[in-house]
Design a binder for these strands. Sequence first.
DNA 1: CACTTGATGGTATGTTTGTACCACGAAAAA
DNA 2: TTTTTCGTGGTACAAACATACCATCAAGTG
Lengths: 218, 218
Amino acid sequence: MPKLADHEERRAHIVDALLRTAASSGLHAVTMRSVAIEAGVSVRLVQYYFDTKEQLLLAALTRLAARMGERVRDRVRTAGASAQGSSAQGSSASATAAPSPRDIVEAVLLEAVPTDEEGRTFHLVYTEYAVLSVTDPALAGQPFLAGPAEMEELLAGQLAAAQQAGDADPRLDARQEAVMLMAASAGLGLSVLLGQRSADAAIKVLRYHLGRVFSPPA
Amino acid sequence: MPKLADHEERRAHIVDALLRTAASSGLHAVTMRSVAIEAGVSVRLVQYYFDTKEQLLLAALTRLAARMGERVRDRVRTAGASAQGSSAQGSSASATAAPSPRDIVEAVLLEAVPTDEEGRTFHLVYTEYAVLSVTDPALAGQPFLAGPAEMEELLAGQLAAAQQAGDADPRLDARQEAVMLMAASAGLGLSVLLGQRSADAAIKVLRYHLGRVFSPPA
DNA sequence: CACTTGATGGTATGTTTGTACCACGAAAAA
DNA sequence: TTTTTCGTGGTACAAACATACCATCAAGTG
């Protein structure tokens, strides 16, 4: 074997270029040439590492879904550690305390609201893929089915835990509330992407609603 | 003037063909040819009535936004008239009674959840346009800003009315609740489009949450 | 009856796209 | 050292696209 080229690294580099161009010009405007230019390689190279455009798009989607998982897991891991804003709520006073269910739920939901430019482009491309997957059979729905279902499960579990700890009204239906939270989070994130709302406003609404859910039983 | 051709009717016909092809193959796959074929006219005709493709897409968007307004208004007008499901809630017993605020809110929110095929294609194309408008400067955000803002206003008003009538907890923040309901409705509708949930499940969640909002003050 | 003008069809054109093909260098294997 | 094979570049090509151009027919107008 001659030249030694780290395939995984090269593929990642090209896929990142794809995601960058998709973020700036839209996923529909992504072409082999634009990706090659953005990646600083020849079109032939893109062909070499991803035979066809469809495979390239698919690889990018896979990477996107994986990154979504990482992002959420990161948020869960560092939940409750950062001093988030000024709204006074009665849990997790110490910075190093174990995150409460509410902290975890809030962290997961806030991921859907893009604040910085990176989050914005990430969620934009992710949403473009999701919508495209409805009409394009090649982009089968796996990433858009497994991921949310898993998160819904997580939220329902945390809600149930909060209920048993007395931090949430036990009369709530944890599963329905979880679905509701997922939908609200997605909807708010989308509205921010569309410019209907600022990220701050979306976060405020989300926190307001969490205050309604995580309240001592009447 | 020679042949007498109703421009508005022809334009509507072509735009409908656009929307149909966009629904089945995706908005990105819409071409002058596919629209012409679907409409049963020559490409030249499409060019004649909409000079450029961009204008055609814009006209379709305008029509889509208008139809969205009609759909919501229709729902509001006939709110409370149909016997909706079996969930027992304590308002609007008679079929011809004036719709309660809850009926109106529910009607508006349910519009975002596609049930039949027509609603599905409608909301799919609408969503494709919305996402496209983020990266395509030609599709300025007007329709996606004015419409939702107006609906948010309506919901906030109805919520306030329900609060004054004693049908909702006066401690709720009507505006934040309205934003929340809009986001949840959009998120649920999107999840149905993506196949994450059935329309029935989404409606159940929405009704469940409305039951939480429209409840006599504690 | 001429004639203008709106509505329509067909076709050409230049560009962009995805992909296939050919070539070359360099490193490991023989 | 020869030879294979991986990585890379350039280019060619057929298809599709949006759009411009040319031609034609019919219906009102003078």
